[in-house]
């Protein structure tokens, strides 16, 4: 009886303590940490009540790009950026419900629809990188040396070589589907060689590495994870963006501030500050050099209109 009462009292105490702690409106300093996500914080931004919510794709966050550039914004505007990193489809969905202030994604058609539907007033070019096809070293579909992604996909289908699709409505997934369309093929689940995983890029690459499958990936994620993918090589797209002969594989990123007319709760002014900051020459230059020291080539190429 006594111990049971004690248990309840302890729970109560924990409850109250924890409740107070969460209720205290302290702005936690953003952790600036490149790759391993848990790492000591080298710098701390000044504490501020302002928090801008950015819905973006996993590629920008997981590559470490945002960790590299965001501290500059936070310092300049004394406003913290809360990054919600999800698939492009989900990021746009979050934006279209007014649950984010600004959206940074890569799926041109969906972005245009986002603007057309009035969720944003305008879309701005930010940067681009490219997609590549990776696959097993022995290249069972014999597509090494091809330059067109549509041709390569046709060959994969003909040879019924195993292919891993993100299958998650991400930007990469919609790009992949458009390549299938231009190859005149509609992948269905009856095709035993076609595997829609419903996973993120990292998981998809790891699965392809394990099972010896072809897949479409953005170059940045592949480079960042290359040492964990010993069984995979670049099959189409060359060793850098310049070597990529297929312009259909370019992967442009756009940024959009969520429209306050449609979603009155959003912080439009700060969101526009973010957009303007992102396309400013200084930051564009920062984007263009990110990753060079580590991979010998940039992961993203800036292309904002001056």
């Amino acid at each position: 009886m006594k111990h049971f009462t004690l248990a309840f009292i302890l729970t109560f105490a924990a409850l109250i303590m924890a409740g107070c702690a969460t209720a205290t409106p302290t702005a936690l300093p953003p952790t600036v940490a490149p790759q391993p996500t848990v790492a000591p914080q080298p710098t701390q931004a000044p504490a501020s009540a302002c928090a801008l919510r950015l819905a973006t794709t996993t590629s920008t966050a997981d590559s470490g790009l945002l960790d590299a550039i965001l501290p500059d914004f936070e310092k300049k505007f004394n406003c913290q950026v809360d990054v919600v990193a999800v698939g492009t489809g989900q990021a746009l969905e979050i934006g279209s419900k007014g649950d984010a202030d600004v959206v940074l994604v890569h799926a041109r058609k969906s972005e245009d629809k986002f603007v057309a539907d009035g969720h944003a007033r305008e879309r701005f070019d930010v940067m681009y990188n490219d997609f590549i096809v990776v696959g097993p070293k022995d290249d069972p579909a014999q597509i090494l040396g091809m330059t067109s992604s549509a041709d390569a996909f046709k060959q994969i289908a003909t040879k019924q070589a195993s292919f891993a699709s993100r299958g998650d409505k991400s930007g990469t997934n919609s790009k992949e589907l458009s390549i299938w369309a231009s190859a005149g093929i509609t992948p269905t689940k009856e095709m035993a060689w076609y595997n829609a995983l419903g996973q993120g890029m990292g998981e998809t690459l790891l699965t392809s590495n394990e099972k010896g499958m072809y897949t479409l990936t953005d170059r940045g994620t592949y480079l960042a994870m290359r040492d964990k993918l010993p069984n995979l090589v670049i099959i189409l797209g060359g060793n850098s963006l310049d070597e990529n002969k297929d312009k259909a594989l370019l992967n442009p990123y756009g940024v959009m501030a969520v429209n306050p007319d449609k979603h009155p709760g959003v912080q439009y002014e700060m969101a526009m500050n973010f957009v303007n900051w992102l396309v400013s020459p200084d930051i564009q230059k920062m984007i263009g050099t990110f990753g060079v020291d580590k991979f010998g080539q940039p992961l993203f190429y800036p292309n904002a209109k001056p």
């Binding site: 790759q35 391993p36 996500t37 997981d62 809360d82 990292g202 690459l205």
Partner: peptide, 30 residues
């Protein structure tokens, strides 16, 4: 929660993140 660093990142979501980025040892550590 959105797995926002410093705000809504908990052990499980941090594990998913590090699995996604292939940092398996960190994921296992967490």
């Amino acid at each position: 929660g959105g797995n926002i660093e410093g705000k809504t990142r908990v052990l499980t979501t941090a594990i998913v993140l590090n699995t996604r980025t292939g940092d398996f040892d960190l994921a296992i550590a967490l």
